[in-house]
Design a protein around this nucleic acid. Structure first.
Lengths: 120, 120
DNA sequence: CCTATGTATGAATACATGTTCATATAAAAT
DNA sequence: ATTTTATATGAACATGTATTCATACATAGG
């Protein structure tokens, strides 16, 4: 370990140059957090199924529950999560709520993820 | 609620046709699980930083720890997770372990995620 | 050999999260 | 008005997971 002098890495470390460069290129904390939060939403089987189902057609809550094989409450809770992160939107029609994808990009992400697991 | 007769949806439900179609199109359980597992790996700030750093250059464990600002142990634990899911590989050189991305696709996924959060 | 260093790992802890249950809200139907 | 139906939500519970601490392992150097 040696002391080095560097704009972004002024500490004891093993490979100061590599660390300096890597620190310069490193994704900022807040952006890393938002990226992780986005992927966290997609990191749940139930939500993957909901998003995939909604990418094909608009569905109401009880239909989503029937399709993915979960209870109404669990489905509603997950839809709230997806609403809060602006991944789905809904319109009310009488007592029913019709859900659809809010963000067209999310379908691309999901598709890429699916392709990734298929490529093994 | 009415009883309907349908290949994939033979039960009581509200919009049997929509449910039948959606069930037919639905991603299979095991594939949804693998997709969610993949995204789950990306759904952590520390791992996002590690993957992003490794997408630029090969780094050893203590350098990664220094770059992302975490302890050696925590870093090593996360690297194990990334190894087990075949997202990173490593080569040993003396007592050091040099890590790099194992899967070139993963960088694309990360990039798309970053673009997504930038697009707000 | 013995020590120092880089890395890995098991156990413990703290924290987050998904589902269920019970219940609330709100609109439609009787 | 009362009941039924669709959805939302709070609380409780169980499970999963990220980090830390202590320690083990392995390699290099004296």
């Amino acid at each position: 370990m040696k002391k080095i002098d560097c704009d972004t890495c002024e500490e004891l470390c093993e490979h100061p140059q590599a660390i300096c460069l890597a620190k310069t290129d490193l994704i900022p904390e807040d952006k890393a957090q938002r990226v992780a939060d986005l992927f966290k939403i997609l990191g749940d089987t139930t939500r993957v199924k909901i998003i995939q189902a909604l990418s094909k057609r608009e569905l109401c809550v009880c239909d989503i529950a029937a399709v993915i094989g979960m209870g109404q409450s669990a489905t509603s809770h997950q839809l709230r999560t997806l609403r809060n992160t602006r991944l789905v939107k809904y319109r009310r029609e009488g007592k029913m709520a019709w859900y659809s994808l809010d963000d067209e990009h999310i379908e691309g992400l999901l598709t890429q993820g699916i392709e990734h697991v298929e490529h093994d």
